[in-house]
Design a protein around this nucleic acid. Structure first.
Lengths: 225, 225
DNA sequence: AGATCGATATTGTTGAACAATCTTCGATAT
DNA sequence: ATATCGAAGATTGTTCAACAATATCGATCT
């Protein structure tokens, strides 16, 4: 059980690297929500000591990706409907606030435009995985309209948690396809400084996206009994 | 150097307790920004092992209260003007979003009303420390208008960081006095469902508060050379 | 004064150990 | 058969001691 995983060069602390590594695994859906992570097992899997792993777990727990129950252990966070609703509530506050600050020529707005173009490219080549990734980046860029590192970091956390849910979904289909056009429209509105209409468009997106995630979540919940 | 500090009953993990303890010390200004926290020294001060303390440090670092420089150590975060500006940027987004959701009879709005009354009481008895505490709680309550645990948690973090700055300021004077009336007006507006005017009032508050903190920060920076 | 180099202290990480707590599972009683 | 209880085993919580890697400091040299 000691299939020590390669961890790359040693410029940043070991714990940080393992944090990134596990976060990626969580986001890619390689670990099932609710699954228990045994200290001994995971430590040997990554070839690190329990003490170091505990630092890693503390970090990921504080970011909502793991959940820690004292004396019971650490588990992969299992977002439920309530979590999803809360996540979208937070998204509305942050992202509407961001759109409100949009101004022509803002680097983040330019980036949003580029990402829409890239999404259309990926759509043409039926690369749905890439469409999904680009969509995430699109919304990250949107929050960068605020020019606030703290808001960026928080939004990053929220998105990571949301991806925990996405990781469980059937990713094969056109999950993100309908959003390409919506994003495109939003960019046009913002470039024309039509803020209110932009907000409206964003709210349409968020509502639709929220419903989709909730429905998918319910489906997987039913599958598991 | 081993003045082991009392840590109370043992129902929650040791690390969590020390996290709270150190957070309180930071917020109360008992540790100077920029000050180095030696692992060995702090560990023996709290009567815990280095390994456990490292978990504590990781937590507090991820919350922005400490700053960790690999191979150099852990330091008390030293928010500068840029940090303060960013904090207020985040506050605007979150709190304006919160006020926008205010509705008559919302528990958080009721609580805001009660806190204003309590602040006026504290003002009468010249209890400025209490006025400051109540003001913090007032804004916490405001964010609770969103009904979002995640936004609450994030705002809590931001506020803690801000208090790091406040901890350094001369707390003797009427720092928070002018805000009592502004808070009172805001509650009245929201209870009358005058959202736009409420937002305006909040923006006035935030701008004034930001200027005050920035000015005070600059003063202490000058003092230290 | 400024650069160089080695001695010292601190951080990063590990492994082993033990107490406290949880889980499992069989024995017993109903 | 079901429920209860308790002991054995496993896991977490925490400490300690050690060592490598890195940073800090001071003395020395130019």
């Amino acid at each position: 059980m000691s299939t020590k995983i390669a961890l790359g060069p040693d410029d940043q602390p070991l714990a940080e690297k393992v944090v990134s590594r596990i976060r990626d695994m969580l986001i890619d859906g390689e670990l099932a929500p609710g699954q228990k992570l045994s200290e001994q097992q995971v430590a040997s899997q990554f070839g690190i000591s329990r003490n170091t792993l505990r630092e890693v777990f503390r970090l990921l727990t504080s970011q909502g990706l793991l959940s820690h129950i004292p004396n019971r252990g650490v588990f992969v966070a299992a977002p439920n409907a309530a979590s999803v609703i809360d996540i979208y509530r937070a998204r509305r506050v942050i992202q509407i606030g961001a759109v409100r600050m949009a101004s022509r020529g803002h680097p983040a707005l330019l980036r949003m435009g580029i990402l829409v173009a890239e999404a259309k490219e990926a759509q043409k080549s039926n690369d749905w995985r890439r469409v999904g990734t680009i969509n995430m980046e699109f919304h990250r860029a949107m929050v960068e309209l605020c020019d606030s590192p703290r808001l960026n970091a928080f939004f990053e956390m929220v998105l990571a948690e949301l991806r925990l849910v996405f990781g469980q979904l059937d990713n094969s289909a056109h999950l993100h396809e309908p959003y390409i056009d919506m994003n495109s429209i939003l960019v046009s509105l913002l470039e024309a400084e039509k803020i209110s209409e932009g907000i409206e468009q964003l709210e349409i997106y968020l509502l639709r996206s929220e419903r989709m995630v909730l429905a998918a979540l319910q489906r997987t919940a039913e599958q598991k009994g």
